[in-house]
Design a protein around this nucleic acid. Sequence first.
RNA 1: GGGAGCAUAGCUCAGUUGGUUUAGAGCAUCUGCCUUACAAGCAGAGGGUCCGCGGUUCGAACCCGUGUGCUCCCACCA
Length: 906
Amino acid sequence: MELSKNYEPQATEIKWNLHWRNEGYFTSTPDERPAYTVVIPPPNVTGVLHMGHTLNETVQDILVRKARMSGFNACWVPGSDHASIATESKVVQMLKEKGIDKNTLTREEFLKYAFEWKEKYGGIIYNQIDRLGCSVDWSRVTFTMDDHYYKAVMKVFVDFYNKGLIYRGARMINWDPAAKTALSDEEVEFKDLQGTLYYLSYKLVEENGNDLGETISIATQRPETIMGDTAICVNPNDERFAHLKGKYALVPLIDRKIPIIFDDYVDTTFGTGALKVTPAHDINDYNLGLKHTLEVVDTLNEDGTLSEAAQIYVGEDRFVARKKIIAELQKKGFLTKTEEYQTRLGYSQRSGAVVEPRISTQWFVKMKEMAEPALKAVIDGEIKIHPGEKFLATYKYWLENVKDWCISRQLWWGQQIPAWYDDKGNMVVAENEYDALQQMQNTFGTISVHGGKLVQDEDVLDTWFSSWLWPMEVFKGISEPGNNTEIDYYYPGAVLVTGQDIIFFWVARMIMAGMHYKDQKPFSNVYFTGMVRDKQGRKMSKSLGNSPDLLDLIDKYGADAVRFGIMISSPAGNDLLFDEASLEQGRNFNNKLWNALKLLKMWEGRQAPTTDERIAVQQPVRDLHADLDVIAATESSETRNFAIEWFESRLNSVRAEMETMYGQFKLSEGLKTLYSLIWDDFCSWYLEWIKPGFEQPIDADIYQKTVGFFEELMQMLHPYMPFISEEIYHLLKERTLDDDLAIKQFAPIQPTKKQILAEGDLLKKVISALRDARNKNQVKPKETIKLYIQTNDRDDYSDIELILAKQVNADSIIYTTSTPANTIVVAVEKDKFYIESEKEIDAVAVKDELEKDLKHQQQFLESVIKKLSNERFVANARTGVVDLEKKKQADALARIKVLEESLSNL
RNA sequence: GGGAGCAUAGCUCAGUUGGUUUAGAGCAUCUGCCUUACAAGCAGAGGGUCCGCGGUUCGAACCCGUGUGCUCCCACCA
């Protein structure tokens, strides 16, 4: 078969994706094997996957494939999240572009649009996951608004309500005036910015309204809220204001009379020492208001415009009104001073609007008691966070200081709160209307409703109120808990792979829900990936245009190259600077593999019978000139092949290394290690060592062994780069049906031979040194040389001399005890090598090299001697350390001797 | 304001309980090669006061203190 010049990913990827799916390799059902469960962090159906998802999915797929190939029943559940507010604002935006105003639609009409949106983007997301090669179980795909899921959410809400863990009440919450909904604390993002502090003077009056002829100055960032002021507060210990007890102030512009109150909350050193109190629009003022039973005047509408209560500028947007009010205050002399001020503003994570503190009636979850077991699970190490301690402190702090969770949202897209009201405002909480009616009757005796229908709460639930059930409900662990073999088998999961940005939103809450309903952690490990940034370190965002399209990348480089590129530079927990150059590296790696395959396929037809011992032995030799010395060496060696033994040991040693790295979730390092094993050890060294001479046959045994190595390398690579590994595995030889890497189980790791590895290292070192000497002396690559070796341990070279000769293009190797004339000398460890070639020798250059090396060695020796002559070192150093230094000393001395001899011989 | 983390080659990062030939990798750079698998390649090379200062120790990239510079999280001072 003719193989293409370069690897062509497109057709290959489609082929194997289809094959794997047809064989049902990724479909999991409970069996006798241990389960390895991973639930995907369900992407929001707000849009397509970005590079952050790509990193997450790749990490998960590597872990899942590795587990599947290591005896586990791997189950990776895919799905998506309805992402209540995020999706709703996208849909609203989309409708707006079509000229449709959400307010003109009924709830049902809007939901129809939303579901269409979900179908479209959900589809794109699933396609992306598929193209990336993710080995998910498509028979288990779950959406957070599926019927059973919806039911589970209702059930949990009712259950929590009945347990007293959910309550409804009027509180000050974060209000998003753009989306016109409440937000949880976690959905508010703070940004530092330069603000202005306005100093306003309020006229002081007696209770009866008589002017005191005095003013009090306060500082505020929000002059548009003065109409909501219901007091001025000063510190009771502040002598400046002691005389104002029982006095009042007049709110500028509207002349409303408000009391002066005293509370040590006020910092006497900040601003003017006097604070205007606006309970409706500031959380601190709200608390002050509660304490001093102040009136609450809400001067804003839900969309952020000024309300009737403001009396002036009614209907104007808050920011427009601010400007106008400032102008008016200035004009009328109330504004005495302005000051630049560093401040922080809360923004809605989804709509971007400046969040308003607002008093409103919402639903809350009590968090305190649920936090305890969730904290314990992590502190006790039942759940391990990777990488390490970094996030433990954050997690702990949040749980220890957790506040109640506002879960109601004034939206349509999501699970509607199962609270039901009758005409009199009586309320019951029940999973459906039928139950609600029953309950209403039982609780209140009569039902007062028009047309026999109760009214359901208009609000929907925070999207995380459904997401936190994910590890359980994907197996119907909430909706059908009884007799459920799936949840018993798959729960808890092995690992959760997610971004550190949702540690509170999701991770902590999943642990809470899991501990609450299963009395067990939802997963054993949490692996936090870093944030994907562009190569300048900026966040990826649509507005910057630095977020590439995943499918475009896959089209351009192939899925394996994308996976490679994103993994090669993403140490756990660190941010990843995404650069297409690393995808190119991945593509180049593909081609490297492809070319190695081509080389093997070339040899396939040129195998000589295994019985031909001469070929077996001489395989490493290119076209060895019949030099007596070499022949003698050849005949004395056994019929074993050094290259094969060496690579076998390398392979097994790397497998063991990678096993450790998997255990520590060091996936990026694992890939680097494997990359180097394949590119350097296998391609650059091993294949060159066994490569037969020009148009020479290859020993059949060596060939078969090599195919075996390649297979094993592909198996190791499979979790990282599933497509090309599977393709090469199949092109290497004919396979029986079902003999696919996707499910091939790893063989046990064999012990490595340290001696062989050491010999290999020496061989590589000598080859590099000799090549370097050739280079520096401008001996042309094609030119053959005569190589002399001067050593006291000729045995060191018996295994490797043939390979050495070939790799440095020597047509003969001669062991010598004296310095041959007119040769380039190279010293490696304690032996000397001499290159004899046609080329005139540049004695000066050789001398320089030797002298440089000598100087280095002498300095090194000096440092060792210094150490050894330090009595305290010899007395205190751990056993072995002194011996090691002595060995260093001996080695350095031997090497200096070699170098000095070489120099004197020049 | 509180807390956490980071600082090692031009860039991105390794560096296991302090001692392993006076610091390693990939990318980038430079030199030489179109060598019958691969120029998306091959063979080599150069490149570091391990952020500054002080301390502990026989010995510090690693431990402690301090300064500087970044990053992140949390927080109700107008």
